[in-house]
Design a protein around this nucleic acid. Structure first.
Lengths: 104, 104
DNA sequence: AGTTATACCTAGCGTCACTAGGCTTCAAAC
DNA sequence: GTTTGAAGCCTAGTGACGCTAGGTATAACT
């Protein structure tokens, strides 16, 4: 449950290296230290939505061995959106921190 | 938009001083540094839900001048739940921080 | 040949908090 | 003295969001 921060997580995970959906799930699990293990039903619709919004671009890749993958990369506006969403997260988190009296 | 952390915010805001709904809204606005300005339609149903769950207890108070207020205080299990939710928030936030590469 | 891991996809649902309204009481303004 | 604004409480309905639960296909391992 990413509570409204799924898009930021996806954009940040893709970052500079183009990834396919399945790899994104594993990357999020790894990078979050096991906190987040997102189901495919969360990832794929979100990727489609972000591509439709122009934040991601996809292409099909046929690796040597293994089946075809749909690989996603950030667009320019995706990179810009990531910057904004990172700032949005920090603002949100500091607000919650203040109220909860955590990390004071 | 508190994205799933409303209950923690309410429990933490009430804390040790019993507050009524309207005052809770103002306290959240103040303590969050203006980040969160929650509408009444968010607060009141949430307070009722938390009371039903046994985390809050309410009583009606008639102040000298002014109208009657419904004042909420934490119960024992409310205090316990606050501790758990604070830990939950910190865990969640550190997970997002890791993925976003913020506060690294 | 069957199982497991990889890889993609979608319809439907449940949770959550916000919108948009309504009601009452009290103090200040006109 | 009545209108207006602020304090104070409440709820039905809705929309955003992501998860559940299902499906399909390919490749590797046994």
């Amino acid at each position: 449950m990413l509570k409204g921060h799924l898009d930021a997580v996806l954009l940040a995970t893709i970052g500079d290296e183009a990834l396919h959906g399945y790899a994104i799930i594993e990357a999020i699990r790894a990078r979050s230290g096991g906190h987040f293990d997102l189901p495919e039903g969360t990832i794929y619709p979100a990727l489609h939505r972000l591509e439709l919004a122009g934040l991601l671009a996809s292409r099909w890749v046929q690796p040597d061995g293994g089946r075809k993958r749909r690989v996603y990369a950030l667009t320019d506006s995706g990179r810009q959106s990531l910057v904004e969403r990172r700032a949005g997260w920090q603002s949100f988190a500091s607000g919650i921190d203040l109220v909860l009296g955590a990390r004071t």
